[in-house]
């Protein structure tokens, strides 16, 4: 076969270019560590995600290391927003409850298909704080265009995984005592040292607590209704930036009030 000299030169140049492309991509994988979405995760049953995959959540798994478990379904992402701190390394685990979606963080190279039965996983580093949109870029049904979520990378010192909950009575009979059960959950691995502040009427009570990593600490505040007197009393429980509040009603005779339909939930 006669091949023109120019064509030979062209062919060799083309081959060099191709080999060059393959080399740069290999360098991206091996040298820079840009891993591909792969088959490293076990399959899951989309109808039994609660067992196979668990709640949509963010977990603290090591120093500056987090795992986000995300479920995509028509036409939302959960959790929404996903919150992680800056200067962290986050591994996303994403699966679908129904059809094929994608999980794509706009403006970044976090981008994966989400296929029911499979779990996509990828790790990303967030050096700075910022807010990103998350979109589904695979057609998933009539309202595909409304499917979006948020990823909040919050400043490191503002980030925590604290959850506050308060259990209390709505009403108490004059002369009786009532208790406020406060639970502080710490999702981080490190201990959380903080103050629980309880306010009711004009009184403020503070209590220093230490919540160990990945656990919950409970504390109780007892209130004597005689000191408050009859009527509505607003209360607040504060832990760092979290606040729970409500109203306690002190009545003369609890049963009679109930018969009158007295219910201060409204």
């Amino acid at each position: 076969m006669n091949i023109h000299t120019y064509e030979k030169v062209w062919l060799i140049a083309a081959l060099l270019l191709i080999v060059g492309f393959i080399a740069t991509i290999t360098y991206g994988s091996v040298g820079l560590g840009i891993a591909m979405i792969d088959d490293s995760e076990e399959t899951v049953e989309p109808s039994e995600l609660d067992e196979d995959f668990g709640e949509p959540r963010v977990e603290h798994v090591g120093e500056n290391e987090y795992e986000a478990y995300v479920i995509a379904q028509t036409f939302i992402f959960q959790p929404d927003p996903i919150e992680v701190p800056a200067n962290s390394k986050v591994t996303f685990y994403v699966t679908s409850r129904d059809v094929i979606h994608s999980f794509s963080v706009v403006g970044t190279n976090i981008n994966t298909m989400v296929i029911p039965g499979e779990v996509s996983t990828m790790t990303a580093e967030f050096d700075e704080s910022g807010e990103y949109g998350i979109i589904c870029n695979e057609y998933c049904g009539s309202f595909h265009h409304t499917m979006e979520g948020q990823l909040h990378v919050v400043p490191e010192d503002e980030f925590d995984m604290t959850e506050l909950s308060v259990e209390s009575d709505d009403e108490v009979e004059l002369g009786n005592e009532t208790t406020f059960n406060v639970a502080v959950e710490n999702g981080m691995l490190d201990d959380l040292e903080t103050t629980v502040t309880f306010e009711i009427g004009n009184e403020t009570t503070e209590e220093e607590i230490t919540v160990s990593g990945e656990s919950t600490e409970e504390t109780t505040f007892t209130v004597d209704s005689t000191e408050l007197g009859e009527g509505d009393h607003d209360w607040t429980v504060t832990v760092d930036d979290y606040e729970e509040s409500g109203t306690l009603t002190v009545v003369e005779d609890l049963e009679e009030e109930e018969e009158n339909g007295g219910n201060n939930d409204e």
Partner: peptide, 23 residues
């Protein structure tokens, strides 16, 4: 390339074949 459930190696093979398809 971005599908879960397919090993990276298979994707690599497809990538090299694709590059040679430029020829």
């Amino acid at each position: 390339y971005l599908d879960p459930g397919i090993a990276e190696g298979f994707k690599f093979i497809a990538m090299t074949n694709t590059m040679f398809l430029l020829l």
